[in-house]
Amino acid sequence: MLPLLTREKNADRVLRHASGDKRFKILEVHMKKHQFRQDALIEVLHKAQELFGFLEDDLLLFIAAKLKLPPSRVFGVATFYHFFTLKPQGEHTCVVCLGTACYVKGADKIMAAIQEKYRIKAGETTPDNQLSLLTARCIGACGIAPAVTFDGHVAPKLTPEATLEKLNTLI
């Protein structure tokens, strides 16, 4: 069917819905700082994820409308970069660095230990929504390998046991 004349368009619905949420306001101010430039899309997505925790469809549509970009372009960019997530994350995040230095020093064993204990794979969240397990390509902390980031804080020179213990105290 050709664009629906009677039904409200998705973008209109999102813009109307967004007007009640303060976070959309903050995001819009941020876009304004970048003069609504289309090349600031990645910066805007960073800010959006920081505000909302993850990038849901309506949020992407809001950004597309404000930056005057086709939604397919915004979605294409948001899914190209690993840093962006389109799914909500758990209460806590645990990012295991799988860079070479960490890998040769046993990061794979740390990964295996977490996967076994919490029965989730990389990129997944526990059913109780407590823990999201993620991996990083290299966080540049090779001198203190193997490193794991717990809720944004890097912990150095870990073992599988020490990692599980950290998670225990976290959750």
Binding site: D39, L41, I42, R73, V77, F80, Y81, H82, F84
Partner: peptide, 21 residues
């Protein structure tokens, strides 16, 4: 700010990324 893509170290990919693509 990059967003987690190793290929963006390649200069033409990096430029695409700087352009927000």
């Amino acid at each position: 700010i990059g967003a987690g893509a190793f290929v963006c170290g390649e200069e033409t990919a990096l430029m695409a990324s700087v352009e927000g693509k």
